[in-house]
């Protein structure tokens, strides 16, 4: 078990390093002069040179990377060109908003997708289920920015229930959450259905039924507890993905999270800010993924036994 944990932690660190290195190399390979973004309009070549020296942009790329790593271990990712403040601080300020949104979305998703998926599995291959099935396909087919706009037009512009954008009150979170949840509900409920159909058809269920176990217990205590494992894994993965992937919804709703920040940072070629964002979101997503993987043996005795024997 300890070996497994150490191996997974090691993999996580390696992946985080790879992600940061990839971003670093990509940024330095790109055409265009970052110093020009930091300089006043129509800068002289002396001004540009001074800026390059100030930010270490005149050094060779490997040297820059080494300096970057050294600073990284001191908790310093560089100063944002645009905000002229430590990039890590800027990102960490925005992070709570993204996390709030992701947590809200995953709660709504679980609350809707699991009952829906179980219902679809129990009514498998009936006409209402075909309807729900097509509904979930539609749910995963709509572009999320478009769902966001349609919700905005309906509830903010026409009905005036919510403020159109930004973060003014607790109610502001509702529309972005629903927008994210629609896609996730479609994906997760289909997974729940698939897992439940397999479990509901398996022999152990027939045995339990013949012993007189109630249908409710059969569904939830027997079939669902077996189906829960891949579902929890998927929810964990989706949550991890949300931490670095709700960019579009944040832009649509002007949600002051990390995604909105990074889109602007990309436009301004704010290298340290992009690096800090990637670093923070990747590490966060990897930690969530790691936790899910480490929970796995706790939830499923079979995995535990498998680890012990191998």
């Amino acid at each position: 078990m300890l070996k497994y944990v150490l191996k997974r932690v090691g993999q996580t660190i390696l992946t985080a390093f790879l992600a940061v290195a990839t971003v670093f190399v990509l940024l330095r390979m790109a055409p265009g002069d970052p110093a020009a973004n930091y300089a006043p309009p129509n800068p002289s070549s002396e001004q540009l040179e001074a800026i390059r020296q100030q930010f270490g942009l005149d050094q060779p790329v490997p040297v820059q990377f080494w300096t970057f790593l050294q600073h990284l271990f001191q908790g310093d990712v560089g100063t944002s060109f645009f905000f002229k403040r430590p990039a890590l601080d800027v990102v960490l300020e925005r992070l709570p908003y993204t996390i709030t949104l992701a947590v809200a979305a995953i709660i709504v998703t679980s609350a809707v997708a699991i009952p829906l998926g179980v219902w679809m599995a129990r009514r498998s291959n009936t006409a209402p289920e075909l309807g729900a099935n097509i509904g979930t396909i539609a749910g995963q087919s709509m572009p999320d920015f478009w769902i966001g706009f349609v919700l905005l037009i309906l509830f903010a512009v026409n009905l005036h229930w919510f403020a159109p954008s930004g973060f003014d009150s607790a109610a502001s979170i509702i529309l972005p959450t629903v927008t994210i949840a629609i896609l996730q509900i479609a994906l997760i409920s289909r997974l729940v259905r698939r897992e439940m159909v397999v479990n509901l058809a398996s022999p152990y269920l027939t045995v339990a039924r013949s012993r007189g176990v109630s249908e409710r217990a059969l569904t939830w205590r027997y079939a669902f507890s077996n189906a829960a494992l891949p579902v929890v894994t998927a929810l964990g993965t989706r949550f991890a993905a949300m931490l670095n992937g709700v960019v579009i919804v944040e832009v649509v709703f002007n949600w002051p999270g990390v995604g909105e920040l990074v889109v602007n940072a990309l436009k301004q070629r704010d290298f340290p800010l992009i690096q800090a964002t990637v670093l923070v979101t990747v590490v966060l997503a990897l930690v969530v993924q790691l936790l899910v993987d480490l929970l796995y043996p706790l939830m499923d005795p079979r995995v535990r036994l498998g680890e012990a024997s191998s």
Partner: peptide, 21 residues
């Protein structure tokens, strides 16, 4: 395959398009 799963995909794609046109 595993490494790619862990990367923030949309962010990387945006970055590449932003950098290479």
């Amino acid at each position: 395959l595993e490494a790619q799963m862990a990367l923030p995909l949309l962010l990387m794609l945006l970055l590449v398009v932003a950098l290479f046109g």
